[in-house]
Design a protein around this nucleic acid. Structure first.
Lengths: 150, 150
DNA sequence: TTTTATGCAAAAGCTTTGCACGCCC
DNA sequence: GGGCGTGCAAAGCTTTTGCATAAAA
């Protein structure tokens, strides 16, 4: 098992970005979070071990990594954005309005939509990480039974 | 041409909500905006005519209308949400990452996705107003020609 | 050595909240 | 008249920004 930080070092250097411990840690935590962590959560996780790291640095670094194409940013509704390493397997999130549960789904699901947008509107959808809101199976069932098939 | 406010009065009363001039104006402006206005923009438009109406009232009223099911809330990336009257013809927004342009598209485009989510995951997607990010036709073309088919 | 990133703190935006007055029912 | 909504202002929260120091190249 090689040091995963080696890959992060290389990714930063290749883009002419400086390699700092803060950036390496942030990349590591983003990867661990698998696209589920907000900027604040990323900061909290890092500060649990290294309290000196300031939240301002997190925000600046996330913007940098996003512009460099290393990290994607997805807005999960009323909550803040969540971050994810690009190049990880593409997936999407079904967010339940009621219970807040998040379900991961594969990327092929969006193929028909992408194709339609491109042919009909020439629009190249950036769908490496999509958030879809609604009711999960459990909550939909509960709502039906609670009100006697409303 | 009947007074559109009559419909708003009725909609509020039917749900046991009080009818106030502020709420009527907010509903009217939301309808005019056709799902493109943020809370602040709604406030600005109203204050252009009636400066006394406070932004706090806008926020409180939008939350009320959303909970009452009269208005839908869509998060268009960066930050603020945009608001739209429910029951208006469903449509969605293609938001260009580069130029910020917003293209309206019909609702049937999402039918295959909705069906797949329901059969595969039992997830009832709430897709009355969807935001899809990417590159519009113009910007995609510009990018290709600029870098010689990158 | 030069350039750039970080820590720190203050500021900036957006949204929420408490209170007293006024309007809707 | 009773209760709810609004105006007002202050507080809260997330994110951004300026500056001096520290670290990377």
């Amino acid at each position: 098992m090689t040091d995963p930080y080696v890959a992060y070092r290389e990714a930063l250097s290749l883009r002419g970005l400086r390699v700092t411990p803060q950036r390496l840690m942030i990349l590591h935590v983003i990867d661990e979070g698998n696209g589920h962590l907000t900027a604040e959560q990323i900061g909290d996780r890092i500060r649990a071990k290294f309290p000196a790291i300031h939240q301002g640095t997190i925000y600046r670094t996330l913007e940098l990594l996003r512009e460099a194409g290393l990290v994607s940013e997805t807005h999960l509704g009323d909550r803040s954005a969540v971050y994810e390493l690009m190049g990880n397997h593409p997936h999407h999130h079904l967010v339940c309005d009621r219970c807040g549960s998040i379900t991961e789904v594969g990327d092929t699901l969006l193929d028909p939509l992408r194709a339609a947008l491109l042919t009909e509107f020439g629009f190249r959808a950036r769908t490496e990480h999509f958030a879809i809101f609604g009711l999960c199976a459990q909550c939909a069932q509960q709502r039906n039974s609670a009100s006697g098939i409303e």
